[in-house]
Design a protein around this nucleic acid. Sequence first.
DNA 1: CAGGTAAATATGTCTGGTCATAATCTCAAT
DNA 2: ATTGAGATTATGACCAGACATATTTACCTG
Lengths: 233, 233
Amino acid sequence: MTSRETTSWLQIRDELLRRVRERVWEPGALIPGEVELAEEFGCARTTVNRALRELAEAGLITRRRRAGTRVSINPPHKATLTIPIIREDVEARGASYRHAILHRDTRLLPAHLGGAFHLPEGTQVLYTVTMHYENDRPYIHEERYTHFAAVPGLEEQDFAQISANEWLVQNAPFTGGDMAFFAITATEDLARCFDVAPGAALFTVERSTWNDQAPITLARMTHAPGYRMRMSL
Amino acid sequence: MTSRETTSWLQIRDELLRRVRERVWEPGALIPGEVELAEEFGCARTTVNRALRELAEAGLITRRRRAGTRVSINPPHKATLTIPIIREDVEARGASYRHAILHRDTRLLPAHLGGAFHLPEGTQVLYTVTMHYENDRPYIHEERYTHFAAVPGLEEQDFAQISANEWLVQNAPFTGGDMAFFAITATEDLARCFDVAPGAALFTVERSTWNDQAPITLARMTHAPGYRMRMSL
DNA sequence: CAGGTAAATATGTCTGGTCATAATCTCAAT
DNA sequence: ATTGAGATTATGACCAGACATATTTACCTG
């Protein structure tokens, strides 16, 4: 009898991962079936399945019923970005946070935003401009359009205590959304907010979110000069 | 007796998801244990476990042995970004792709990059500057440092046929990496490459990757003016 | 040869168990 | 009151077997 090893699905996953990485199985090649692998590792098929499923989720292998499992030709590299609440992000770095409302009104959705917001031009929205500060230094300039009909209780909020950013996350849960990252040159307004020369390059994140019923909010967050948004692979 | 429904783990996941979304279970609340849920849904504990595990991976619930499962207070919103190979990205849009090597030499790692690259200053690296074109229009300017010792066969590659980007993905699989997004103002060199005025705002992605042994490559990809990097939540 | 049908098969899911592990709770001894 | 040992318990992992489902392959027919 051989020694009783702990054959966890993690060990199997790592071994399979090794074979893929070290090209024991070439990209595009068909790898042994679950039953065969289960025999090799001396475990149940379920356990091998778990390991293979994880690898498939990571995109390293491609699985199809009856056709079997293949090593992906060029595995898509995925990165996960966790979107923080600005206040928590700042405070997590041990800095102080505050925000100020620069502007707030009710208006009809401008025509040029209809596309990004998926709402007809002229829908009534709340328009807010907020400045977020880290250690009393300008951090993020937030320009936001929020769909009145989609968020009950929006009229009563003045966002003095809690920022729109944070209030919406807690009170208007969204089920989907999309983001875009890009660079802009500072307008005079923005330059004044960040105390830089007009024309400086600023990093901007535009985010629109929606729930099952309707679009909720479209926010454009422009970051202070020199800001770097980090993520790991 | 109720009708015999197909109680797949997906249906259970969706029902649990609904209860979390619609606050049937408040954020922070302890939800019923697996055994209890299995009884409710009339299925095996394994099936409930699968559903709960998926929700936990998505960050909606938090699970701890013995302590049970709780609804996350503020679920981290995660976005997954798939990093494309530039050529495939361009061709997927039905555009034509080509690239050109602007520069290539062997040099010692500049001091200011030691931090980002995690290699001692003075390590021998390959320095390449590549321009990527979409429909013959400048698309991405790529400046790259590659660690000679970490990539066998690097000397022989001139990257004329296949870009460094693509060749490295296929020949130097990495196990980890990190990225940073930021805005820069165009230097004279970059302005010339993109045919814009110096000082224009450009969107840049900096990416460094490594494997188990050592850092592999550090790339700075500067995108054409107006470029928007999109991702969905 | 084209087109349709049936058999074969690898993955996907589910069951009803067992055992493992980590946290928490209880309670007695200090 | 504090600490530490042990019981308790919810999740985590695993197994052997069954059925479900998507595809491919083989075969059969017009």
